[in-house]
Design a protein around this nucleic acid. Structure first.
Lengths: 205, 205
DNA sequence: GTCTATAAAGCGATAGAC
DNA sequence: GTCTATCGCTTTATAGAC
């Protein structure tokens, strides 16, 4: 139990920033040390190697990302409200963590074996109350029959993708910073509306 | 005009594969040379430096990506059919080029200045017949009033995001390769349906 | 144009003093 | 725990023979 910000914490904070902006391959131990206000030797003293330092950070980020999702999916509210809340949470998350999604997906893409090591229990998502409730409603014929995972990915993609593609979207839209912000704010309203409207439309099936 | 596959082409092909799978920072000139079946010195003879080789490839990939989009957006078919065709094309594109989206977005994220150098004319997207037709329909009150760019991003995100997030989606869904393929095939049908349904719903506004 | 050999710099990691 | 100095390997890039 240390009172001040410990060296270990300073390293983790600095390394997190560098890894997120440069990726594993592009990050430099020297740069992390500089940002943490210490020297390279300390990085190895605390974490042995670049790889082990990265693994620790990546695991933390992925795990907290995962836990956030599971928590919301199990909230005790009905599916319709949950879609709205889920979108809202993702909006807040990506607004504050613009570089986390691309970081996670990129590192997983370039280093698939990272994934197995994380031992994330993704069946917790499949078994969430959100998935169960959607399935029940589908069986009752109250909403369109579809894979609940498709619904979840509609929300994910709708809110996460734009942050990944921000440079291109801002170019197409000729946005400044505020322009993109308001673009995202609009999406936060549109996405749940579209999905709920689709699910409720029973005229076709 | 050379008849056989020139050394330059062999280098570009090999470098494209390596850069797409490892990224700029993670790619090694030695690995590119090996894959091209030549030695490192030739890489520098033809392209001077790693950076210049990368720039050439990145520019080509981004430009062809851009041109494909513009072409479809200006196809002479009505907006509704165009949404379906656009989704279909993206489906085919990402099926064959799973690593291109993450590559583009990641490199743009880590090196924003690349973007300015490309001098891509994105107003060609804003000025496409697709955007114009959507605006006309909105003014006529035939479809819901929204930013046409939002509509385009619905399609982009709906079809491109899942490929970027494949490892996570496959984990959640407990998919093997075929499982993910069929997940994408479903999306190809769902996405345009959802969007068109939403746009046609005039009951609310 | 293509190769081998090597320079030159970068970088992760360690030794050892304090 | 923290520092400086340095090792040893990797990697980009070049020189020069053919």
């Amino acid at each position: 139990m240390k009172k001040d910000i410990s060296t270990e914490e300073k390293i983790l904070t600095a390394a997190g920033q560098i890894f997120k902006s440069k990726g594993y391959a592009g990050a430099r131990m020297q740069e992390i040390a500089d940002k943490a206000g210490i020297n390279k030797a300390m990085l190895h003293y605390y974490f042995r190697s670049k790889k082990m330092l990265f693994d620790k950070i990546f695991k933390e980020i992925l795990s907290s990302f995962h836990q956030n999702i599971v928590k919301i999916l199990n909230d005790d509210i009905n599916w319709e409200k949950k879609i709205i809340v889920l979108t809202e949470r993702f909006f807040l998350f990506v607004s504050k963590n613009k570089d986390i999604p691309i970081f996670i997906f990129n590192e997983l893409h370039k280093n698939p074996e990272f994934f197995q090591k994380q031992l994330l229990r993704f069946e917790t998502i499949r078994n969430s109350s959100f998935f169960k409730e959607l399935k029940t409603e589908m069986e009752k014929g109250n909403i369109v029959k579809t894979d609940p995972l498709q619904v979840l990915i509609h929300i994910f993609s709708g809110m996460i993708f734009p942050v990944i593609a921000e440079p291109i979207i801002s170019s197409i839209g000729d946005f400044n910073n505020d322009g993109f912000e308001s673009f995202m704010y609009q999406r936060k309203e549109i996405i749940p509306k579209i999905i709920i409207e689709y699910l409720k439309n029973n005229g076709e099936k």
